[in-house]
């Protein structure tokens, strides 16, 4: 009887192991799965992609001629940061807001400019009934509001995507464009575009 039961138990045990459900894991730097963040899970933009797109733009901005002139200026210019317009096929507005906070921190830490609190800008947009409307991306409105909060320059941008499907594949080409614009003149003092492509292939 035992001879029969032991293999049966082994089969049941192995089946149970094979059928065990999904489990939560920890990954990234400092864990035993440091590469967990690297795998692409979809054609959407994950933290890796957004960090890359932003990092390249911020590095270029801080190395730009316009930024050099800010460093040399007798008084530090005031800069407002406005939302980045999401023109992609992915719901990434929350991630973009997180990265704008990172951008704000980098600019403040640089000590080269004075940065208008985004919280204050949000309040102002709310006061004039523009929060959650499309007007926060309208250049004329943004320039007007920037002037009201005392900024000489404002940073804005947009993230766009070319999304294509073909038999058995989908490819999305993302571009993030960042612009530094002078409030009074609307002159663009800095502009850079970084690119990243995601795809589902077989």
């Amino acid at each position: 009887m035992m001879r029969l039961r032991l293999p049966l138990l082994l089969v049941v045990a192995s089946l149970a192991t094979a059928c065990s459900g999904p489990k939560a894991v920890r990954g990234g730097p400092g864990t035993d799965r440091p590469d967990l963040d690297r795998a692409a899970m979809s054609t959407g933009l994950d933290r890796e992609d957004l960090n890359y797109l932003f990092q390249e733009n911020i590095d270029r901005l801080l190395a730009s001629r316009a930024w050099q002139s800010f460093r040399m200026a007798p008084t530090r210019p005031v800069i407002a940061i406005w939302p980045i317009r999401n023109d992609t096929t992915e719901h990434i507005d929350n991630q973009l807001n997180t990265l704008l906070a990172t951008l704000e921190s980098r600019l403040v830490e640089s000590g080269d400019v004075l940065v208008v609190s985004r919280e204050r800008q949000r309040e102002m947009a709310q006061e004039v009934g523009l929060q959650n409307t499309n007007a926060v991306y309208d250049p004329a409105t943004v320039a007007r509001l920037s002037k009201q909060v005392g900024a000489q320059y404002y940073l804005t941008g947009k993230i766009q995507a070319v999304d294509e499907r073909a038999e058995g594949e989908r490819r999305v080409q993302y571009t993030l464009t960042l612009q530094l614009i002078e409030v009074e003149t609307s002159i663009i003092h800095f502009q850079h575009t970084s690119v990243r492509t995601k795809a589902i292939v077989r």
Binding site: N86, T88, T89, H91, D93, N134, D163, E164, R165
Partner: peptide, 20 residues
Amino acid sequence: LGDLSGARVEARRFQVMRKY
């Protein structure tokens, strides 16, 4: 929800699928 940005994302996704 009054979220025009989110609606635009869905509109673009619709556009891609419709074209396909």
